[in-house]
Amino acid sequence: MILLPCPHCGPRNASEFRYAGEASTRPDPNATTPEEWRAYLYIKNNPAGWTTEKWFHRTGCRRYFTAERHTVTNEVRETRLPAARLESNS
């Protein structure tokens, strides 16, 4: 069982978490087209390699965070809270 380093709680068993899918960006709901919106809903990068994804620490701090995980080795190289992303974007 892999360990996921929760940015709040530290490394924990993956069974404490829920995988919440690839990180994605929500289109503007009032300007979007069906193609764009459904790409957001359904299309995945699904790489065999590093991917950026969302996890939820279900039986821990109940925080969502972003993880960079390698989908072949399952190694996790970085996790961060979504707020950190916002700060870095602003």
């Binding site: 069982m1 993956a14 069974s15 829920r18 995988y19 690839e22 699904n46 065999a48 991917t51 994804e53 989908t71 072949v72 080795t73 399952n74």
Partner: peptide
């Protein structure tokens, strides 16, 4: 499995 992966190593759980 509960999350995506290209690993076929399998898990104990």
């Amino acid at each position: 499995d509960p999350f995506t992966s290209y690993s076929t190593r399998g898990s104990l759980e």
